[in-house]
């Protein structure tokens, strides 16, 4: 790990001032950043330790929504009574990710800002346009079992590794950030970006901007939801594909269906137009399959990950069936019903 200067501000304004100059990284739980520093992928000149900022709380919002502090840990969030009762999809997705130890340290802001687990991004001996713009992409034509099948570019086929963010996409969460220009709120759909020609940028934060909270709207999906995650081992592994579904069913017909995909793209993948094919439908395999094809239109593999195209469509059908039936996937009993 490289040497760095260290600052530990105690309020957000000081942190944002510290975060503005180049080569600075904010340190929260450290579960991803410290790892990347050990790999020499990240070599910050300065670490701004934000753990003393007052961003640890989870608070009710006046409109019935919930504000998740950026520094609330993933574990405290998943096990918060209000999250369990009002946003069980989010709780389930968080508990599907990482390990108990990591969730005790990893924060909500850090979960948003974690980097891809692409092998080439981690291996500084190989080219990677995300790590070193212009150097090329080792994954295209290389080992790419875990890589993207949607929204990738000729420069980068990395995926965003989060489970939590997939649920946040289905819940239409909003990310609150503070920077030199003040505060702003970014819809989750606009927070992460596709790689295009500039894969070095994972998200739409301006340099030095700090995530302060994630707001969940007062729209509850407590009956018809699921988070279905498929991976190479049953626990403690990143998703090959995952599906978050938030659905409403009234008088036997689907009135709303939100589908977000993980493990398949540079950001949580949602196609609202594709979701609308389910509106007014009675739950059925055919209707689910039509939605699965619509949301994955244009999906294609890069060799080793070709299987993901078929796998994600089947996972979507299964997840929609789980949500429609009100039988969400258990994150402890691993059988997929």
């Amino acid at each position: 790990m490289n040497r760095f200067s260290y600052a530990r501000p105690s309020d957000v304004a000081d942190a944002v001032r510290e975060g503005r100059p180049g080569d600075v990284r904010y340190l929260a739980g450290g579960t991803n950043l410290v790892d990347l520093m050990k790999e020499n992928v990240e070599r910050p000149a300065r670490i701004v330790d934000i753990n003393r900022l007052p961003l640890h709380d989870i608070d009710d919002l006046p409109d019935g929504g919930l504000r998740l502090g950026a520094l609330a840990t993933n574990a405290d969030t998943a096990w918060d009574k209000r999250v369990e009762e009002r946003y069980p999809l989010l709780a389930s997705a968080i508990l599907a990710g990482a390990s108990p130890q990591l969730r005790n340290a990893a924060t909500n802001g850090g979960n948003l800002n974690q980097r891809t687990r692409c092998y080439y991004f981690y291996d500084t001996a190989t080219p990677c346009n995300k790590r070193e713009p212009g150097s090329g992409c080792g994954a295209i034509g290389g080992v790419n079992r875990i890589h993207a099948i949607l929204g990738a570019s000729a420069a980068c086929i990395a995926t965003h590794p989060s489970d939590m963010c997939v649920a946040l996409a289905a819940l239409d969460a909003t990310v609150r950030v503070t920077g030199a220009q003040g505060e702003r709120a970014i819809p989750i759909a606009d927070y992460h970006r596709l790689p295009g020609a500039e894969p070095q940028w994972d998200n739409t934060l301006a340099p030095g901007e700090l995530v302060t909270a994630i707001d969940l709207p007062n729209e509850r999906f407590t009956e018809h939801y699921t988070y279905l995650k498929l991976r190479d081992r049953l626990s403690y592994a990143f998703a090959l594909v995952s599906v978050a579904v938030a659905m409403r069913v009234e008088e036997g017909r689907i009135t709303q269906a939100r589908i977000a995909l993980g493990g398949v793209a540079h950001k949580p993948w949602r196609v609202p137009n594709a979701e609308s094919v389910l509106h007014g439908e009675t739950p059925s395999q055919n209707a689910f399959l039509a939605a699965a094809h619509a949301i994955t239109e244009g999906a294609h593999g890069h060799g080793e990950n070709d299987f993901k195209v078929g796998l994600v469509r089947k996972a979507i059908v299964r997840a929609l069936a789980q949500a429609a039936a009100g039988t969400p996937q258990s994150q402890t009993d691993k059988r997929v019903a």
Binding site: Y6, R8, L27, G29, G30, T31, V34, D35, I47, D49, N51, A75, P100, Q101, L102, N104, A105
Partner: peptide, 15 residues
Amino acid sequence: GKRVNSCLTLAVSRD
């Protein structure tokens, strides 16, 4: 009281 991975924890951040 909470279990964490000490390898990914910078000691200074847990002052």
